[in-house]
C-alpha cells in the first residue's frame, strides 16, 4: 500500500470531456486501479446526454473511506480534461493552490459556436491559450494528446496519453496502470495504447525533471495553438472541410443550414465549399449531414494533414 493511505482525506480526481471521447472509460480505468490498490472508491457520472455532443464529467474519489460521491468546487486534487474548452469549464474545481491540471488542447468546437452573420462576430469558443491558463496553476500540463495519438495511428488513444500524464501525479506503479488499461481497451489496440501511455508518461516525467524555467516552457510544448476567434477570419488557413462526394446524396441540408451560406451543390449536385473565405468552421454542416459526408478540421496542422 502506498503512502497516500497515510492521509484520511480521499483523493479527488475530476475527469471531463465531450460525449464520445471516453471520459467514462478513463474514470473506470482509474477507479478499477484504485480498487486493486486497496482503496475505497466512488465514481460518479451523469448519463443521458453523453452521446449528444454535450459536456461529460465523472468524479472519482478514493481513499480509506469515501462518503459523498461528488467533488465540491475547489476540492479536486487533479483535473483531467480530454478537451480544451471543457478544461476551462472545470478549472475552478481544482484546489486553488496545489491542484494538478492535465488537459488535451484539441478543440471540439460546438456546432453553434458561430451563428452570427455579422463581420467580426465572435466565435463562441474559449479564447484563453494554454500558456495563459498554466500561468495560474502550479502543476499544469497542456498537450496535443489527440495529435500524439493520431501520429501513433489512432486518435482515440488520446485519453491514454493523458492517463500516462496522470500516472505521474499518482503513486501507483506504471505496470499496474498498463495492466488495467490493457484489460479495458479493445485487444487490437493494446499496442497503440501502451505506446500512448508511455509517451504521455515520459513527457510528464521530463517536464517534472526539468529546471523551473525549462519546465514552464515544456508544460505546453505540444499544445495546439488557439484559433483566432473573430469571424470571418482567414478561414482557409485554419479550416478545412473534407466532403466525401461518394457519400453526399444531394439532400441540400448543409447548403440550407449554413449560417454563412458558404456551401453549394456543384454541377453534379454534390456539396462543395464555394466560399471558403466565409467559413468559420462552426461545424453545423458536419453535424447535420445525415450521411456523415462532411468533416470539419479546424487547425492548421489538421488542415495540412488532410489537404
Amino acid at each position: 500500500m502506498n503512502k497516500m493511505t497515510s492521509s484520511s482525506e480521499p483523493k479527488n480526481v475530476l475527469i471531463v470531456g465531450v460525449g464520445g471521447q471516453g471520459v467514462i472509460l478513463v474514470s473506470k480505468i482509474l477507479a478499477t486501479l484504485c480498487q486493486q490498490q486497496g482503496f475505497q472508491v466512488k465514481q460518479s457520472e451523469v448519463h443521458g446526454m453523453a452521446k449528444r455532443g454535450g459536456g461529460v464529467f465523472s468524479h472519482v474519489r478514493f481513499g480509506e473511506s469515501v462518503w459523498s460521491p461528488t467533488i465540491p468546487k475547489g476540492g479536486a486534487d487533479i483535473l483531467v480534461a480530454l478537451e480544451w474548452a471543457e478544461a476551462l469549464r472545470w478549472v475552478n474545481f481544482l484546489k486553488p493552490n496545489d491542484g494538478t491540471f492535465i488537459s488535451d488542447t484539441q478543440h471540439i468546437v460546438p456546432p453553434f459556436a458561430c451563428l452570427s452573420r455579422k463581420r467580426s462576430a465572435e466565435v463562441g469558443y474559449s479564447r484563453e491559450t494554454p500558456d495563459e491558463i498554466l500561468a495560474h496553476i502550479n502543476d499544469g500540463y497542456a498537450m496535443d494528446a489527440t495529435g500524439i495519438a493520431r501520429e501513433l495511428g489512432n486518435d482515440r488513444a488520446a485519453n491514454t496519453v493523458l492517463l500516462g500524464v496522470l500516472s505521474t501525479a499518482l503513486e501507483f506503479q506504471a505496470d499496474d496502470w498498463r495492466n488495467v488499461i490493457s484489460s479495458f481497451v479493445p485487444p487490437k489496440t493494446i499496442d497503440i495504447n501502451m505506446k500512448a501511455f508511455d509517451q504521455g508518461r515520459d513527457w510528464a516525467l521530463k517536464v517534472k525533471d526539468s529546471p523551473d524555467d525549462a519546465a514552464r516552457h515544456l508544460r505546453s510544448e505540444h499544445a495546439v495553438p488557439t484559433v483566432p476567434t473573430k469571424a470571418p477570419y482567414d478561414a482557409h488557413d485554419f479550416v478545412h472541410l473534407d466532403i466525401n462526394p461518394a457519400w453526399c446524396k444531394s439532400c441540400d441540408i448543409c447548403v440550407k443550414m449554413c449560417p454563412e451560406r458558404c456551401l453549394q451543390l456543384d454541377e453534379n449536385l454534390k456539396a462543395i465549399l464555394s466560399a471558403p473565405d466565409r467559413c468559420t468552421g462552426c461545424r453545423i454542416c458536419e453535424w447535420l449531414c445525415p450521411d456523415l459526408a462532411i468533416t470539419v478540421y479546424r487547425t492548421p496542422e489538421a488542415a495540412a494533414a488532410c489537404a
Binding site: 465531450v18 460525449g19 446526454m49 452521446k51 449528444r52 455532443g53 454535450g54 459536456g55 468546487k73 475547489g74 474548452a85 471543457e86 476551462l88 469549464r89 478549472v91 475552478n92 481544482l94 486553488p96 491542484g99 460546438p110 456546432p111 453553434f112 459556436a113 463562441g124 469558443y125 474559449s126 484563453e128 491558463i133 495560474h136 496553476i137 439532400c251 441540408i253 458536419e286 453535424w287 447535420l288 449531414c289 445525415p290 450521411d291 456523415l292
Partner: peptide, 26 residues
Amino acid sequence: GKGADIIDLDPTVRPPVLCPGCPHTS
C-alpha cells in the same frame, strides 16, 4: 466563505445536440 476562483472565465456554451447524421434532423 467561498474560495476565490483560480481564473475568471466565461465557459464555452456546449448544448447537447442530436447526434451527427441523425435522420430526425431531415
